[in-house]
Design a protein around this nucleic acid. Structure first.
Lengths: 332, 332
DNA sequence: ACAACTTTTGGAATCGATTCCAAAGCTAGG
DNA sequence: CCTAGCTTTGGAATCGATTCCAAAAGTTGT
């Protein structure tokens, strides 16, 4: 039995296709009796309007796509949960896709916006160049979260990574840190901003940065361990380490602890993100709380404006407030 | 400037729409010169075929949807990475959506399959009843991963949760466990299977289960801590605990350690999943490795068969091999 | 009972890409 | 130079839902 169409429903209900469509879309110009007949026919045939036909006619899909390299970070899943909830509140469906860092896959997914498979795009960690992001954003509804390129037309939602890194570094200094090291990542813009904030805070305190190490590729627990090992092997040990993410900080703490050092007494460690890992770590991590869920909600709200208000090609970024969370991995 | 259509391209290139479409779809029946003219026109107009029109005509989308409650578990993100990679290999796009455990959202997303927004569905942790899953699977292309309902028509890919739980419990017994407790979750089918395996292993060893505790709702690190606290407060302490997931095991270990107990000397703890958390825990967790990525790949392969081979409504589940990973949280 | 409305209805046109059919344009062989 | 057999092309029909317009049905007041 093939799929039922609006024609089939009309025939079964003994009305015209126009009336069926009106019932389907809740138009008020339908009599009660027609409405009942149509609904009965729909039930009988278990009819569902075909999405592609509806989308073609209406010229919109009520779907948005959220794009990231991976989904293995808790920050991402929180951000996308926010996007999903906000989208649902406005009657949209939010779909998620991972590019796996493959430019070709990313291209194909961004094309879903170009070819009208979705109405808008939430971009988390693009692989493509700033110019490409800008070019897409110029024409279509795109909003960035967390990672925001500098392109003219691009815009998005994030915290002030630079300032947050400055603040947490300042905390390390205020609690006695003098030889400050950093374990970061330069692959993403946010990583470079955090590095800048770190360096500035150290310099402003009249100190010079100790070692500044960077991870490549997949930047996780094991990178944290490996880079902490480098710190240890370098001889003169820092007394405080700022890590670019919690998960790296967790790896760092683990390596230091295994080497017999006490955190925070011998060496203080700070993370970034306040992901669930921060609480699982022993000792629990001092970190910067990113309002991930809220960022997702706001990102969708801005995207919605872009999608619905005609010339609303707003620029610039929206900063959301962050918060220092002081726990046990730094000296109180 | 409005979106360019195939008509515009045809006009610009000085050919007919038929020819444009043939170029677009790589039909061999096009002369070199036409092909060039069309491609040039496409470039000029930066034309992209509209997805909804194409899908309507072709009656398929080359998209699949992967559905889960949340994306915050590393097992899920690995499974979906497998689905995504396998889909890409076959020219499909795999989209992911979270239901947030909301039946209405779930309904809406499953409707994307009914209304032809996607060609197939990978179901991870359905909220709907077994019958509903069965009803959808009867008509459309659905495959389940990890959690598999008993409905007739339903089928999917998982490990043998019951046997795996049996094996790891056996390991706890073989390494000296006599008073065996479990911290599990009954919300999901896999949780009940793991419980059954645990009970069977304990009984088969001529022992009786000590406490068996269950978490509700969001079942994570904090549940693990809370339930471990209950164990502690119950007075007579077990000497081995099997936890339904690694993250709960991590919470459990943390609570026990904070209470001054030594893991595994005073009490052994085993997890399940071999997610990244297992290695981050101190001591590192003995656990069962689920081949999450591979499960995703296999799930897509089975889905593909359902989508493309006409009457291929295969039933029953596919079991993938699991593996005990012995680490430091149990007595060696 | 009729005019002047309002509510409800049917049906054709439309969205944009694909595909099929018939026709036109070639090439080669005689 | 014509025909048989290719390749290439144009254009109409099609997919299924929506929407607009005109007409039919129904309501109200006098």
């Amino acid at each position: 039995m093939a799929r039922a169409t609006v024609q089939d429903v009309a025939r079964t209900a003994g009305v015209s296709v126009g009336t069926v469509s009106r019932v389907l879309n809740g138009s008020p110009a339908v009599s009660e009796s027609s409405k009942e007949k149509v609904n009965e026919a729909i039930r009988q045939l278990s009819y569902r309007p075909l999405a592609s036909a509806r989308d073609l006619r209406r010229d919109r899909t009520m779907r948005v796509l959220a794009l990231a390299k991976n989904l293995d970070s808790l920050v991402i899943s929180e951000v996308f949960r926010g996007v999903g909830d906000a989208a649902a509140d406005s009657g949209y469906v939010s779909l998620i896709a991972a590019t796996a860092g493959d430019p070709e896959r990313e291209q194909q997914l961004v094309d879903m916006l170009r070819n009208g498979s979705v109405d808008g795009l939430v971009l988390f960690s693009p692989t493509m160049s700033d110019e490409e992001v800008g070019a897409v954003a110029e024409q279509l509804s795109v909003v960035q979260v967390c990672e925001i390129v500098d392109a003219e037309a691009a815009f998005g939602v994030s915290i002030d990574d630079r300032q947050a890194a400055y603040d947490i570094t300042r905390h390390l200094i205020d609690t006695g840190g003098r030889r400050l090291a950093m374990i970061g990542h330069r692959g993403a813009r946010s990583g470079r901003l955090r590095e800048a904030g770190f360096r500035q805070a150290v310099t402003d305190a009249g100190l010079a940065p100790d070692q500044v190490l960077f991870g490549e590729g997949s930047f996780g627990f094991h990178s944290g361990r490996a880079l902490a090992r480098k710190l240890l092997e370098a001889g003169h040990l820092p007394d405080a380490v700022f890590c670019g993410t919690d998960i790296v900080a967790a790896g760092c703490v683990r390596e230091l602890t295994d080497a017999g050092l006490r955190v925070p007494d011998d060496i203080a460690v700070a993370g970034f993100d306040d992901s669930a890992q921060a609480e699982m770590c022993v000792p629990e991590l001092t970190t910067v709380r990113q309002p991930a869920y809220e960022m997702g909600r706001v990102a969708f709200a801005e995207l919605l404006e872009r999608m619905t208000v005609p010339g609303a090609h707003r620029r610039g970024r929206t900063f959301l407030p962050y918060e220092l969370v002081i726990r046990d991995s730094t000296r109180g």
